[in-house]
Amino acid sequence: MINIVYRLKSPKFFEESIDEIELDGVVVRPTFLSICQADQRYYQGSRPAEILDKKLPMALIHEGIGEVVFDGESNFKSGDKVVMIPNTPCGEDVCRANYSYSSKFRGSGFDGFTSDLIKLEADRVVKLPDDFNDYVSAFIELITVAYQGITKFEDIAITPKSRLGVWGDGNLGFITALLLKEIYPESKVIVFGKHQDNLNLFSFADEIYRIHDVAKDVVIDHGFECVGSSASQSAIEQIIDLINPQGTINLFGVSEYPIPINTRMVLEKGLTIQGNSRSEREDFEGVVRLLEKNPQLFDYLEKLITNICEINSLNDLKEAFDKDSISKFGKTILKWNK
């Protein structure tokens, strides 16, 4: 089957290429995609030159849903709405596939979802209820990253979970705080951020603080860092300062630069630091169950959508990335008409 793939050839320049898809596995037609900051770093050319030379040309986007076109094993029916899993295990490993060096990740190690058709193995596809909001479903992958980290946190936390602090008022901070409040309804969820306009959207949080205006008596049991970049340093410093002994610090933010950490206080308080990245099938299934049981979450998550762009051409795709790059908050959703 002939397939057209829309790849980033160099920063800010997309090109079409014709590939062929063999009819095995599950073939999905993308319908709604979502731009991630990692996609923007490739598009803007802000990754190191040697990385760009190695990975481009490449189709971007690793967040998205689609409709099943073909399934050789008949696990899915034609027209089924599914979420696509970008992490692709390549062999057995002792660790989770999303942390394995042998796994490949779409839109990073190989082509993402900007094509007419996507071929996936059956375990890289999870069926969605027909009544799920398509625009929110487009970024289920991002929700699974927060869900995966919270699941791991549950495994390592040995002290009370009465006061959970989330640093970061962006997309991931919003999602992480929302899931924490849903999963631990008896806990206080406290959000620390820099932008008051963003913080005002965290209506479900028990307390919100601007990072430079925190009450002196504020303490937390566990911290979740969702800041990233060089700002991670000040966020981690503040978490270490406010956290109770033997708490956990759960890192989500990505930085291109080394971040210093006050190990003296980490040792003194007996803290556990855990890194979180990407997700796996069980996380997608968990998020789908969570959204099915708690449909009110869609109302909150819909607040993250700042741009909806219909994509009928390469120029539309470029304009969507340009529009997303000037958005200070929220998600850009691509209605994929290709």
Results as ranks from 00 to 15, higher is better:
I2P: 13
N3M: 06
P11H: 05
K12R: 13
F13E: 15
F14K: 09
E15W: 03
E16P: 14
L23W: 04
V27A: 00
Q44H: 06
Q44A: 08
V68Q: 00
G72F: 00
N75K: 12
F76M: 07
F76W: 05
K77F: 12
K77S: 14
M84I: 09
V94Q: 07
R96F: 08
N98E: 08
Y99N: 08
S100N: 09
F105E: 08
R106C: 13
G109S: 09
F110T: 11
S115T: 04
S115Y: 01
S115P: 14
A122M: 03
D123W: 00
K127F: 03
D131W: 07
N133H: 07
D134F: 12
S137M: 12
T144Q: 06
Q148S: 14
G149W: 03
I150W: 06
T151C: 13
K152Q: 05
E154Q: 14
I156V: 13
I158W: 07
T159C: 13
N171V: 09
A177Y: 01
K181T: 04
P185Q: 02
V191G: 03
D197R: 12
I208K: 07
R210K: 09
D213T: 03
H222D: 06
H222N: 12
G223K: 00
V227C: 07
S230F: 08
Q233T: 06
A235M: 10
I240A: 01
G247D: 02
G247E: 01
T248Q: 04
T248F: 00
N250S: 13
V254E: 04
S255L: 11
T263I: 15
M265W: 01
L267R: 14
G275Y: 07
S279K: 10
G286E: 10
R289S: 14
L290Y: 02
L291K: 03
P295C: 06
D299T: 10
Y300D: 11
L304N: 00
N307I: 11
E310L: 10
I311H: 02
L317C: 13
E319Y: 14
E319P: 15
D322P: 13
K328Y: 07
L334N: 00
K335V: 12
